[in-house]
Design a binder for these strands. Structure first.
Lengths: 205, 205
DNA sequence: ATACGTCTTGGGCGTTCGACCAAATCGTAC
DNA sequence: GTACGATTTGGTCGAACGCCCAAGACGTAT
């Protein structure tokens, strides 16, 4: 069964979005051009401005599509009523996965920076960030009754993006175990217990 | 006294670096061009390739110069043996200042992303990040004897960059008080005290 | 005064950019 | 089979791009 022209059109559009997302990560938001995104997608350059009003519009669509999937995953997890254990595991998994999968990861950072120069993108991202913060705050408050739940949510979400950035430039960071410190921040654990009484610095590399 | 030609040369070079740093923030790393950086610096386009081997080289120099100042400030503060109070104040001040001064702030994020595509920049930034992590770990361990000092350092530094990114796209975040949660993460405070026993979510905006 | 190194000027090289368009092609509906 | 909307093609436009260079201007050392 041969695809209809509408079907191939949607396919072309999807390939352009995918190619745009890849090029944003590889070469940076500002350097993605009509011809190279078309070349990557295996279509003619003219098609870019048929399917999208402008190159920048294509980039915004591509970033939003990719990020929306990740955000929805986090939201459904938090709103699904995950208990303490699976919730923290999920967050640690997020950190680990984002640290390993630098594809999606770098796209987030690129989009956040691009959002400072594109009003529509900024509003969309601020909205998504607010959704995540609300959901995470509710989840934390339900889990721990922590009066600082909202502040902790802000910190955890910032942590995610910051860790991802730092992992990009120094993959050795993956060897630092973060779980205990994250537990403490999230209010899921007690205060720190010094392993010796003299307060001397620990060895670190 | 009229400046010598060497002096005006250094001045031109400095103006180009400053203009490059500004344009990186305003328009993004990948879009800074020979002519516009020269125009911003008030010099002729040809001078860019007299003082710098390439545009990308100019950008790396500009980013490193600006970031080195900030990093040195943090390092000398930590190594100066600040006590608990002034140390945490200093960190909170950092967050507040970076959140307000989006100039320097966005440059950090741009440079981190650009570092994923430039080996020299990546090595320089990874080195500076390691220095900060070491100094912060030592300082925290000396303050609290926290066995998790290194993990906490990784988190605090990631937090700084992540918060900065999030503040860029949603300035309302500035209204969320973070001090108590930061204290808890840094091991400078006790465990969270629930203000009510039912664990119900708090209101948030 | 003459020579030298540093800095600046103005322009030109070939390439790539975003955007746009008329014509060709294709399924579908009539 | 004919008309139609959706899609694709191949190409052009002016502008901006990075990089390079010959010539001039300037301060300094000899």
């Amino acid at each position: 069964m041969a695809p209809t022209s509408q079907e191939t059109g949607r396919e072309t559009r999807a390939r352009l979005l995918q190619a745009a997302a890849e090029l944003i990560v590889e070469d940076g938001w500002g350097t993605v051009s009509t011809r190279r995104v078309a070349d990557r997608a295996g279509v003619r350059p003219g098609l870019v401005h048929y399917h999208f009003r402008s190159v920048d519009n294509l980039l915004v669509e591509a970033a939003l599509q990719t990020m929306r999937q990740e955000v929805d995953g986090l939201l459904s997890m938090l709103r699904g009523g995950a208990d303490t254990g699976t919730g923290l595991e999920f967050f640690l998994d997020l950190v680990a996965r984002y640290a390993a999968d630098s594809e999606t990861t770098a796209l987030f950072s690129e989009a956040l920076l691009a959002a400072t120069r594109n009003e529509r993108l900024r509003e969309e991202l601020a909205g998504a960030l607010g959704e995540c913060r609300s959901a995470l705050t509710d989840w934390l408050a339900a889990q721990t009754g922590d009066p600082e739940a909202e502040a902790v949510s802000v910190l955890l979400l910032a942590l995610l993006d910051g860790l991802v950035l730092h992992h990009l430039i120094d993959p050795r960071l993956r060897r630092v175990p973060l779980e205990a410190a994250l537990r403490r921040l999230a209010g899921l654990d007690g205060p720190p217990q010094a392993d010796d009484g003299d307060g001397s610095p620990r060895r670190h590399t």
